Simulated scan of single mutants.
Amino acid sequence: MTAATAPDSDTERLIAQGWAALPSSYRLPDKAPTLEEARAWCKHLAETHYENFHVATWFLPERLRPHFHAIYAYCRVSDDLGDEVGNTQQSLALLDLWGRELDACYEGSARHPVFVALAETIRACNIPKEPFADLLTAFRQDQVVTRYATMQDVLGYCRYSANPVGRLVLYTCGYSDEGRFRLSDATCSALQLANFWQDVKVDFAKDRVYLPQHDMRRFGVTDATIEKGIATPEFHALLKYEVEFARNLFLQGLPLINMVDRDLAVDLDLFSRGGLEILNAIEHRDYDVLSSRPSISKRTKLQLALRAVSGKFLPFLRLGVSRGKAA
């Protein structure tokens, strides 16, 4: 690291304080691990932090799993640097450090397990830096922006916070065309909106409101409405409007499922239907996300998984039945 880019003592202090608030395994090691060690680190993080990710990997070709583990680990740690530290300046310092490590990764000098594993994924799948860097832009934005004027502003945030993930998945599976990217962006933005509408109360506790301010004024909803935790008729109307917007965005992205290979199509179907089920759960509560957080039942999750499995194997089952009849 050159003198021009080296952090000053105040920044180093903020970084040290920020690391102290996070798992010790997140810190930069003195010595870079081997690729095998780095992949094991990412796999452990992915499979112990997010059960839905673990379920999704059932449907991925085994050869791609290390790449998805590395991408997930990058996203998980990046998100935690922004959300789990509890101090804006410390988080920003850590995110800047993480950005420098991303640069080092592309320059061939990765040191953290995430970037050692990610470097091989980037090489094998020919992934540009932009989607990784865009995610850091979103996490930095979360530190300083807490309200969004219009839906276009919210979607502008999704362009950095959600859409890069879908593009990374497509790159990893061998797709890099703008047509598929646009459909993926619709799905990912819809998923982000579904999570926002599900977590209005949770986000408000962090002083974040993703409901567009223009729409809130239009329907007569204020921060005080959310703070009181009572879903007024005005709030019901607002959430119904936003849920329908997100549902239409999901529908725009669904054609992508028929434009990718079967393994990826299963994942896309699982996550798209899961996002739509979140919206259904909100609707079933009459759009009251303030008294309690709507969630998908275990039974519904199982049904979605079984639907995905049957969708994956149904063509083969049909082929087998046809052959049986022919015999």
Rank of each mutant, 00 (worst) to 15 (best):
7 P>T: 13
7 P>F: 13
11 T>N: 12
13 R>P: 13
14 L>Y: 13
15 I>Q: 12
18 G>E: 02
22 L>H: 00
27 R>K: 12
35 L>C: 04
38 A>W: 03
39 R>G: 07
42 C>A: 07
43 K>H: 12
44 H>S: 10
58 W>K: 08
63 R>K: 06
74 Y>E: 00
75 C>S: 11
75 C>Q: 07
76 R>K: 04
76 R>A: 02
77 V>C: 00
77 V>H: 00
78 S>Q: 06
78 S>H: 04
79 D>L: 00
82 G>W: 02
89 Q>D: 15
90 Q>L: 04
90 Q>I: 05
91 S>L: 04
92 L>K: 05
92 L>R: 05
93 A>P: 10
99 G>A: 02
102 L>H: 00
103 D>M: 10
106 Y>C: 14
109 S>M: 08
110 A>Y: 01
111 R>Y: 11
112 H>I: 03
112 H>T: 08
119 A>Y: 14
120 E>G: 11
121 T>R: 06
122 I>W: 11
128 P>V: 05
131 P>M: 05
133 A>V: 10
134 D>E: 14
137 T>D: 06
138 A>L: 01
139 F>T: 03
140 R>P: 07
140 R>C: 10
143 Q>I: 07
152 Q>V: 03
159 R>V: 03
171 Y>A: 02
175 Y>S: 07
176 S>V: 10
178 E>P: 10
178 E>M: 06
181 F>Y: 07
197 W>A: 11
206 K>V: 10
209 V>D: 09
214 H>V: 12
215 D>M: 06
225 T>M: 08
239 L>P: 11
243 V>H: 15
249 L>T: 15
251 L>D: 15
253 G>S: 08
256 L>G: 06
257 I>E: 10
261 D>W: 10
264 L>G: 06
268 L>F: 13
269 D>E: 12
270 L>I: 04
273 R>D: 10
274 G>S: 15
275 G>T: 13
278 I>K: 00
293 R>E: 10
295 S>F: 12
300 T>C: 04
301 K>F: 08
303 Q>M: 09
307 R>H: 15
310 S>E: 14
310 S>C: 13
314 L>R: 15
317 L>M: 12
324 G>N: 09
